[in-house]
């Protein structure tokens, strides 16, 4: 565990000292300016639009950060050849995978909390508030989802370069998010192998829509039952563990030589 934390702490220092943190601030600045000047079709007074767009941007930025950071951590160890002194230490490949995931997840989570804080301030300045319990539930689910995105990014990056891993993670997460909730409708209209294939996809891929409480937050619906939230969090943890296990399986026997994958 301590070795995993050491690896994660290196990720945190890197994010603070490299340009990533500036990217975060630029995104935050853009985010605030959009929200402050929002007056589309004369609807500037309607705080519900501010909430909706603010939450959409928070989701979008955190998704980009989680995928970009997680998918480059392992490949960059190889391209910069820092993997050699690291592997020469008594650290297992499982600890490396876990440490990288933890580093990526914590960085994207902290950035997301900053976005939420900014959103709460902007909404407050417009004279409205979120339901605090629902907001806490929404943030908890969102952070868990970022853990899944980070685990998927890490999993793909064990055997691919960072660009390919990021692209595949974007495709998988976006298609799961947009298409999977529609599968039950589609299943009604097809039969045979297609139906079986769709059902396999439906049950095999992670359901990100379960983590989305934006509508509830925007329209001030009452909070969900904590039991339901806990179940979704458990589901999220299981998905994270599955992807981290797959990452470890792919990484544990990887051959490294002269900085190149053989």
């Amino acid at each position: 565990m301590k070795r995993g934390l050491t690896i994660a702490s290196v990720v945190w220092i890197e994010m603070l000292r490299r340009k990533d943190v500036y990217v975060l601030f630029i995104l935050l600045l853009a985010f605030l300016m959009i929200l402050m000047s929002l007056n589309v079709f004369g609807l500037g007074g309607l705080v519900v639009y501010v909430k909706e767009i603010g939450l959409l941007l928070t989701w979008l930025f955190s998704w980009i950060l989680a995928v970009n950071i997680s998918s480059r951590l392992l490949p960059q160890e190889e391209t910069q050849r820092t993997i050699f002194p690291l592997l020469a230490k008594p650290i297992s490949r499982a600890e490396i995978v876990f440490g990288k995931w933890l580093g990526a997840w914590v960085v994207s989570s902290v950035a997301t909390l900053v976005f939420y804080a900014a959103l709460v301030v902007i909404v407050g300045l417009r004279g409205s508030w979120f339901c605090w319990t629902a907001l806490a539930q929404g943030i908890a689910l969102h952070l868990c989802l970022l853990g899944i995105f980070s685990a998927i990014g890490i999993a793909f990056s064990t055997r691919m370069n960072s660009d390919a891993a990021a692209s595949l993670t974007y495709v998988l997460t976006l298609s799961s998010f947009l298409i999977l909730p529609r599968v039950p409708e589609l299943v009604m209209h097809v039969k045979g192998l297609r139906q079986t294939g769709l059902l396999i996809l439906y049950y095999a891929l992670p359901h990100f829509e379960l983590f989305d409480m934006r509508l509830r937050l925007v329209h001030q619906y009452p909070p969900a039952q904590w039991k339901t939230i806990l179940l979704v969090l458990v589901y999220g943890c299981i998905v994270i563990m599955i992807f981290l296990t797959l990452s470890w399986l792919a990484y544990r026997n990887k051959r490294f030589s002269q900085g190149m994958l053989k």
Partner: peptide
Amino acid sequence: SIARQRIGYLPEHPDTYRF
């Protein structure tokens, strides 16, 4: 990995975390 507990290694190009 227990074998590596007693090893020190300097690679030919000691690339490391430059940050």
